[in-house]
Design a binder for these strands. Structure first.
Lengths: 207, 207
DNA sequence: AAGTTTACCATACAAATGTATGGTATTTAG
DNA sequence: CTAAATACCATACATTTGTATGGTAAACTT
């Protein structure tokens, strides 16, 4: 029953998905109409009916915002990964998203936190591997022993954090890499955030 | 400004969060009222006002379902972990939740999927370790090479799945453990679901 | 040329929704 | 004891929302 969508229908479906990611809730007919410049909701209504007929969404009648997205392959939603971060030697951070990963379900990012893809194996004894996605929270104070993301001379690293008297030590879990020691006042050093979780998608294929 | 919530207010906030996770959208006043057995929406309305006053939510006036959860420390949402699952030798599965973990909202799970805590190290070469939380989707067909959760004689295991002619082979990544071979018709064997993701919380303290 | 699909508009309406106001009973704080 | 906070109820009302119906115009079948 799944026919192709027309261009406009595709745009509306994209908008539905986009809203569910960014706002957390699907829009109302009025909001869709306003976004696309339609002067009344009936137009949207008819588009939604067409999209539903083609099997991409399911509407719960009478209830507001009750648009369910039923497309199987939209189950996983691409989210931008802001950059790669080196667990071993520093890597340059990318200005924009370099990649997207498929995070399960239509989910909202925790406020203010972001994702980084780890490259390198220096944290392998902390069970973080190349390709893993770390969830970074920039609003927490790092404590000794926690794993942090830091910027050092325009490159980003993921290391375990230790605060000393006048300096900060960033150590790798992997003994092959030596600790980085930075003076606290070193200008081009900044803690980006602490790693609050590690996520790895297994959906595509086996490792 | 963040005063303590009363018991009932806490329950309502929990319900809001829960609905946002499971249904994807916040409930309407009527839905909340019906869930708690209130005979009219005004009661809910007053509770929401109280919760908003205490700074836990933010309401967008006039709009339906426009309840935003603003609690910073609700960054992580408690989710029940349904049981432990053995990566090495089979472990008994628990009927009810054995634990809750704080799952970041980004790693939110596809509908119907659930969490299991891995115990044992037989999958350590697939980078899954004891204590990790696996996200299990019961609605996907397992393909060869994927990591699945299976029930075998009332115990659950996490293994890599291989389908043969008349039997199914469940292999560990760790060479110390031997593959389990099951006849396809073996009665007390069932694939529970496939592992779509692995999550590990790093927030509490360093490993 | 006639019919179908697509893409809009306008109007109308019932139900859902949020909100305002006032009331009662119980508990808690001063 | 009095006042305030809490936890409900009832009623009322303006919007919002979803939906039904009918109409116009362009594009594309057949």
């Amino acid at each position: 029953m799944k026919t192709e969508l027309t261009e406009i229908q595709k745009k509306i479906l994209d908008y539905l998905i986009d809203q569910k990611i960014s706002k957390g809730i699907p829009p109302t007919l009025a909001e869709i109409a306003s976004h696309f410049g339609y002067k009344n909701r009936a137009t949207v209504q008819q588009h939604l009916q067409a999209i539903e007929k083609k099997g991409y969404i399911k509407k719960n009648p009478k209830l507001s915002r009750a648009i369910e997205i039923t497309v199987e392959d939209k189950f996983f939603i691409p989210r931008p990964v802001l950059g790669e971060v080196a667990a071993g030697n520093p890597l340059t951070i990318y200005p924009d998203a370099i990649d997207t990963i498929e995070l399960p379900t239509i989910a909202r990012m925790p406020k203010d936190s972001f994702l980084l893809k780890v490259k390198g194996d220096s944290l392998k004894d902390a069970y973080i591997f190349s390709g893993d996605i770390v969830i970074v929270n920039p609003n927490l104070e790092p404590k000794n022993g926690q794993i942090v993301v830091a910027i050092l001379d325009d490159a980003a690293v993921v290391k375990r954090f230790y605060k000393k008297k006048n300096e900060i030590e960033l150590v790798s879990e992997n003994p092959e890499y030596k600790p980085i020691v930075i003076d606290k006042k070193y200008p081009s050093f900044k803690i980006v955030g602490i790693v609050v979780g590690v996520y790895r998608s297994m959906s595509k294929k086996a490792v």
